[in-house]
Each structure stands twice: as C-alpha cells, then as structure tokens.
C-alpha cells in the first residue's frame, strides 16, 4: 500500500492480506455501489476448481430445488467458461451452437438437445 504505512504487526498482516486479495484472486473482489466500475465488479471466475459450484450434485432431499443456484445455470459454468472437456458439450471448440435455442436457461433449458460425439 502506498498511502497507508503499516506500523504494527497486525497492520502488516492486513497489508499482506489486502495485497494478496489484489493480486487477483478475482473471486474475492467485491462490487460496491451499483457496480458500474468493471474494476470493482465481481469477476466471473475462470474454472470451476476455484469456486464451489454445485454442478450436478443434488440437494439434501435428492432433488435440485435446494441447490444454491439454479441447476440450469451450472450448465453454463462448464459450457461457456471452461476449457475442460466436462460432462457437457464445450462451447469453445466443438459445440459453439449447442445452446442457441436456449435464450433463458431457467425457462428454455428443455430446448437444449443431447449431442452425440
């Protein structure tokens, strides 16, 4: 930090923490006051290994209703942003049009078809 000079040991620890967070663990960035600044908007994490995405897990009742985000959205976690050949077709190389018929994941997910590689 340039404007605040850490004096005691706790301040040094805070400084370390802050610069670690700034050296881009994007998932930790926080949006403030309306998010119209890209620099302070939460980034979309690249790769599912650094976030907890429930993916194709089920909730405690064996269904998907209780997952922490719509299960349909998980599709896109893997489809759009992940290079890794996962359980869904990949957008980057082989199936760029796979979700063309799906304008809104929560409504149109039934229109997404199977693929046969």
């Amino acid at each position: 930090m340039k404007n605040l000079r850490a004096i005691n040991r706790k301040a040094h620890a805070i400084e370390e923490y802050v610069s670690a967070a700034q050296d881009d663990v994007v998932a930790l960035q926080q949006g403030r006051g309306g998010n119209n600044n890209p620099a302070t908007r939460p980034h979309y994490p690249v790769g599912c290994s650094i976030v907890f995405s429930p993916g194709w897990e089920v909730d405690s009742a064996g269904g998907t209703a209780g997952l922490c985000q719509p299960a349909e959205r998980d599709l896109y976690d893997c489809y759009i942003s992940c290079f890794w050949p996962a359980q869904v077709p990949d957008h980057l190389n082989n199936y760029p049009d796979w979700t063309k018929k799906c304008a809104s994941a929560t409504k149109d997910w039934k229109d997404i078809d199977l693929v046969f590689p």
């Binding site: 404007n3 605040l4 005691n8 706790k10 301040a11």
Partner: peptide, 18 residues
C-alpha cells in the same frame, strides 16, 4: 497522523491525502 483500526487493532500511518 495515525489510525488505530477497530476491531482489527492494526496501526497505520496516514499520508496527507488519506
């Protein structure tokens, strides 16, 4: 100029602008 932050208890010296 200094601040003693609560509750972290960090002590920082402030520069002029801060």
């Amino acid at each position: 100029q200094f601040v003693y932050l609560v509750p972290s208890a960090g002590v920082f010296e402030l520069n002029e602008v801060s």
